[in-house]
Nucleic acid binder design. Structure first.
Lengths: 347, 347
DNA sequence: CTGAAAGCGCTTACAG
DNA sequence: CTGAAAGCGCTTACAG
């Protein structure tokens, strides 16, 4: 691979001059000289060494994105949004699937730090894990000292996201929509207790249920994982517990998909006997049967704005947090409750 | 950020010694010295600079993965497989969504080249675009000269994939399964003509249809895009053309999902009136209604083996191509053809 | 407008 | 087992 030295030699100029025409677009260089350097670069198939440049600047044009799992459509959508904007600015994006393991998350952040990534974006929620968060905080402080930008798209241990969504309000809106349909006993599949985002969603559910004077039986709230298997298991738990309910509101779409599937296996009609609602509006939500009622989050836009936020941080700006609106989307998995008796477990 | 120089000073040794304990695990250093260096590193929160190391080695522990779109479950699954193995080896993975634009693909490869990525894995198929492929070839040659590994997981302009699947055989197996169900007139949604992988799948269809003596009317094969919208449009085209058919075999799952959806909108029962089969077995294929019959590709494993292949290339090994088997999975979108007259367009 | 030179933080022959 | 020193390929004051 040709280096700037060889380009300079071939063009008959100093490396300083060659470097200026290759990288510093605005530096004054005479037209003739500039052209000779450009010709030499072309002839030698010169591609600048980003590592050398990065070593010099102590930063490279790379964004790390920490996700739970790139397979989860929620995250691939956000990553795509980041990539859209990053590509425009010549940034490359590194995806890191942590599987929600704080240890893996820390090890990725350390790697990103060692690469002097210009920014790291936490696409998912933080976890309540004091020991690990301490190490995380140390790495983030190190990166910030070095001028890197840190952006969160969900609530986390160190505060509110720079770019996010009002989770509690979103869930509350769905609960209200369900109540409007006539549901008075709404179960809630809550997601992992350790995730801050799940806590916010649960808070939204509790607030709405209280505000609307709906049923609050203990067994109505089921802690779960955040995947579709968890949705299926929660349905079983709900039925076994004996609580009565006519609707299931889920903390994310994957749970809702799993719940719908399990209900189908059990011969319970959705939405005839039970309504099911999701949250996030991942792309599959619109193509399952029945099509899922859910709360739409502007996932791709969250990614775009998250990157834009990082770039402006790098430019030294101080920015106010951005909160995007959510929207209830009623499709085919919700309906008024059955006229007869509500769904009831067999405890 | 502390550098190796500061660690060395604090430990009272030369930078050479400090560097050896930090990076060269097997280099002989006396126990006492080693411990003092380790202590200093810890105290200073030292994180090695991967850029400096990479500049030295002319290579950094990063894999670039070129995908069509990270949103497409086919690709996110492959990427996850790559990441699984890469993380173990301390590699970071950069995802590049080209949207199947050769221009974007080239610009990503150039960026990866400038970063001195240790490897680039092409997860998707190559495109027949001579002008762009020339530039691509130049970049890849440059990277190879520099010792980088290049791996393809699908057919491409420069030959067969290092790790892949027998696409033609996979489609042929599905056509045979459909024939076994009793279908004699099977339409084929072929995907983009410019993609090598689509050509292989089409070849598999033609071969099977010929071998089995099935209907070969001209209108039976419909070129399409590779997304679900394309599947919907193809159904309209098929119906308008007037060909008769009882099954639709699709070059990928997204097409099949779109076809099923469009058929549903038109009130045509799947699989009662028409059978629909996909290809790839992306994760949603199992949760749609009806559940999609398809051909399973070991996507995640393809990713894992692809990375393993890259690592062994980096180690200087010469490896034979690996071809993974595919498997027909019959679910609920296929059935014997209706006893009455076959589906027929209204041309 | 142009160049000589130092330096970013490592690695690695080479010498001891 | 340890260290002095050169070099990877750029960028950037500084001087002219």
């Amino acid at each position: 691979m040709a280096s700037i030295t060889e380009v300079a030699r071939q063009a008959g100029v100093s490396t300083a001059t060659a470097a200026r025409v290759m990288a510093a677009a605005d530096y004054p260089v005479s037209e003739g000289t500039r052209q000779r350097v450009l010709d030499a670069a072309l002839a030698l198939d010169y591609v600048p060494n980003a590592l050398a440049r990065g070593l010099q600047k102590s930063r490279i044009a790379v964004v790390g994105v920490i996700v739970h799992d790139i397979i989860d459509p929620y995250f691939s959508e956000v990553v795509r949004g980041i990539e859209d904007v990053a590509a425009t600015d010549g940034y490359l994006v590194i995806t890191c699937s942590s599987d929600r393991s704080p240890a893996r998350e820390n090890s990725y952040v350390r790697l990103l730090r060692s690469m002097r990534a210009a920014a790291v974006i936490f696409a998912g929620s933080g976890m309540d894990d004091p020991a690990r968060n301490e190490e995380l905080a140390r790495h983030l402080a190190g990166m910030r000292d070095n001028g890197a930008a840190i952006v969160h798209l969900s609530p986390h241990a160190f505060g509110e996201p720079e770019v996010g969504v009002d989770n509690a309000a979103g869930i509350a809106a769905m609960v209200a929509a369900l109540a409007t349909l006539g549901h008075g006993r709404i179960a809630f599949l809550a997601g992992p207790t350790a995730l801050y985002v799940a806590r916010e969603r649960l808070a939204g559910y509790r607030r709405a249920v209280a505000d609307l004077g709906l049923g609050t039986d203990r067994g109505l709230v089921v802690p779960t994982t955040f995947d579709s298997e968890g949705g299926g298991r929660a349905v079983d738990r709900l039925l076994a517990s004996g609580v009565s309910f006519t609707a299931i509101c889920c903390a994310n779409d994957l749970l809702a998909l799993g719940a719908v599937r399990r209900l189908g296996e059990l011969g319970i009609d959705v939405p005839g006997s039970v309504s099911v609602a999701g949250f996030d509006d991942i792309s599959v939500a619109a193509i399952t049967a029945p099509k899922l009622s859910t709360v739409r989050l502007p996932l791709r836009e969250l990614g775009r704005r998250g990157f834009a936020h990082a770039v402006r941080q790098l430019a030294g700006e101080t920015l106010a947090p951005e909160v995007f609106p959510t929207e209830v989307v009623l499709r085919d998995s919700t309906a008024p409750p059955p006229a007869a008796s509500p769904m009831k477990g067999t405890a």
